[in-house]
Design a protein around this nucleic acid. Structure first.
Length: 271
DNA sequence: AAATAATCCTGCGGGC
DNA sequence: TGCCCGCAGGATTATT
């Protein structure tokens, strides 16, 4: 499910249930995730209080007095809040058990992960080299323009590189480039600073809108099934191959880039 | 049956 | 030569 807005929505969805609460225990039914779930995770988290609950890129950080758990949803992961007596269903791999609720991690494809570190989590090897948060002031025109100089990779793959900027996944990469009027194939190093100004604004807009949309679904998180009711924002090109561009009517095109589908309007995205 | 909302790893080629 | 970097492609997986 997750690009950054979905992770942010998930974090907000569990925040009030988990933050400052004591973790009674952790039940791991499947350790074979993107990386093996460390054997020590149950002992390290059990009895601890979830003192901080934050996000870095697409990682959710659960901080305790002893260390930090790093949770990543991968491509198909989700969290939901269930009652203590709810029986686990298919692909419900991990439970974080609280006094009167369970945070339940479901991930069919098991590309997600749950890791543990006792050091500064931001210095963990998987997080240390991450680029700036797209909604922060560190992510600005000058930064992205400078980072792009000399780069021959396509602009779409460039903004999907988490060392450049975190949180821009396959859907919002296509959407952002459409809004900025940039052809996804264009070499990152050949775009003008003016164009990067549009792109940075587009990325911030698209992600902020998506988070806002996710926010409107938060009540579903505590609803009957405790699942996050992700709503996609109204997408203008993604998954719309052959349909008319909303702006000019030209059929939206799809092609493969870095083994991922890219969608764009050949008329609106000529730069 | 090919596609999928993520991302790390491997190997290659070029520059210094 | 050897090292570092950028880049392309592979691999992981269950479901529709």
């Amino acid at each position: 499910m997750p690009e950054l807005p979905e992770v942010e929505t998930t974090l907000r969805g569990i925040y009030h249930t988990l933050h400052s609460q004591k973790i009674k225990r952790v039940d791991v039914r499947e350790r074979r995730m993107r990386w093996p779930v460390p054997d020590e995770i149950e002992a390290r988290l059990s009895g601890q209080t979830a003192a901080s609950l934050t996000r870095r890129g697409k990682y959710i950080l659960i901080g305790t007095d002893n260390g930090t758990a790093l949770l990543h949803l991968g491509m198909s992961g989700s969290l939901r809040i269930v009652d203590p007596d709810a029986p686990p269903e298919k692909h419900d791999h991990i439970d974080i058990v609280l006094a009167d609720k369970i945070i339940r991690f479901n991930d069919p494809r098991r590309f997600g992960s749950l890791l543990w570190t006792e050091n500064d989590p931001l210095q963990h090897e998987l997080l240390a080299k991450l680029g700036p948060e797209p909604l922060s002031d560190d992510f600005n025109t000058s930064y992205l323009f400078n980072a792009s100089r000399g780069r021959n990779v396509s602009i779409k793959q460039f903004i999907m590189n988490s060392e450049v900027v975190v949180g821009v996944g396959n859907i919002y990469a296509s959407e952002s480039l459409f809004r900025a009027g940039i052809n996804p194939k264009k070499a990152a190093g050949k775009l003008s600073k003016a164009r990067y100004e549009k792109l940075v604004a587009a990325i911030k807009e698209v992600l902020a809108e998506a988070i806002q949309q996710g926010g409107t679904t938060l009540r579903d998180f505590h609803g009957a099934d405790g699942k996050p009711g992700y709503f996609r924002i109204k997408l203008k090109v993604y998954d719309r191959a052959g349909e008319p561009c909303e702006v000019c009517g030209t059929p939206v095109r799809q092609f493969v880039q870095g083994q991922r589908a890219t969608y764009y309007c050949p008329a609106c995205q000529r730069v």
